[in-house]
Computed example of a mutant assay.
Amino acid sequence: MTYARTMATLHELIPDHARVASVSRDDAHRFSKPTRDEITLVTGLGVEGDAHAGRTVQHRSRVRRDPSTPNLRQVHLIHAELLDELAQDGFEVVPGALGENVLTRGIDLLGLPRGTRVRFGDGAEIEITGLRNPCVQIDQLGHGLMRRLVARGDDGEIVRLAGVMAVVLADGTVSPGDAITVALPEGEHEALQPV
């Protein structure tokens, strides 16, 4: 599926004030990740010290299917505005609870096309590969949360709100408060699909 965006829409996706709200990592395969003062991204691997880092898939269900599959889920990002919306719906979801590595504020992650490059601060850079396909473990954080994060749109299509996945293109540290800059891919843009 491909789509085009106007310059006004692109400015809404990529405002000048986009920032990192928090960062998280965990060396064990747990659903939630503790927040940290900083994380280090390693080219081609992911978040240093995180259980999901690796050139090939690290998520347990994917390893069971085919452990040689390339890891397109090295870094998980969620927009903080989602947590704000969930709080309004009565769900208390703190940074790191949904297993994200980077919580952003001020950027429409779900509206970015596949292949978008995201740079943090002065160095670390990732490329968006697709949407996170959330699992039923999300309901451990609150009954009905999974239905809130995966629903059907007015057109009948499944809408996934649990963030995006990426691979690391350039090493660097990422800390809360870091500026976020975005470079859209050249040519026709492709909508994000689950990875």
Rank of each mutant, 00 (worst) to 15 (best):
T56G: 02
D50T: 06
L145F: 12
G46F: 07
L145P: 14
P134H: 02
L41M: 07
L110F: 05
E125N: 04
L13H: 01
L145D: 11
L10E: 12
D84A: 13
L145I: 05
R119M: 04
E186H: 09
R60C: 08
T104S: 11
L131S: 01
D155H: 09
D26F: 02
P67T: 04
A53K: 09
V20C: 04
A80V: 05
Q137E: 11
I128P: 08
M165I: 06
L131R: 02
I78S: 01
S24Y: 07
I128F: 05
G44Y: 12
A151G: 00
V23W: 04
G153H: 03
N71C: 07
R105L: 13
R19T: 15
V75E: 06
T181W: 01
S22L: 04
R36H: 11
L145Y: 11
L112Q: 05
G177S: 05
I158L: 14
A21P: 13
T129V: 04
I126K: 02
A124P: 03
L83D: 10
V102M: 01
L41I: 05
L72K: 11
V102H: 03
A166Y: 10
L110T: 04
H17V: 06
L131P: 02
Q137V: 11
E157K: 11
G156T: 06
R132A: 11
A80P: 08
E38G: 00
H17N: 15
I128Y: 03
I107T: 14
D50M: 00
T173W: 00
A51T: 07
G156Y: 08
I78H: 02
V63D: 14
F120D: 00
N71E: 05
S24A: 14
G44T: 08
G106M: 06
F120Q: 00
T69S: 08
A18L: 07
R64L: 15
V47F: 03
D122M: 01
Q140P: 02
L77M: 14
D122F: 00
Q74N: 05
G156K: 04
L83E: 08
A179N: 10
R62P: 07
G153P: 13
E190L: 15
P194H: 08
I158T: 12
R19L: 11
R25F: 09
L82G: 03
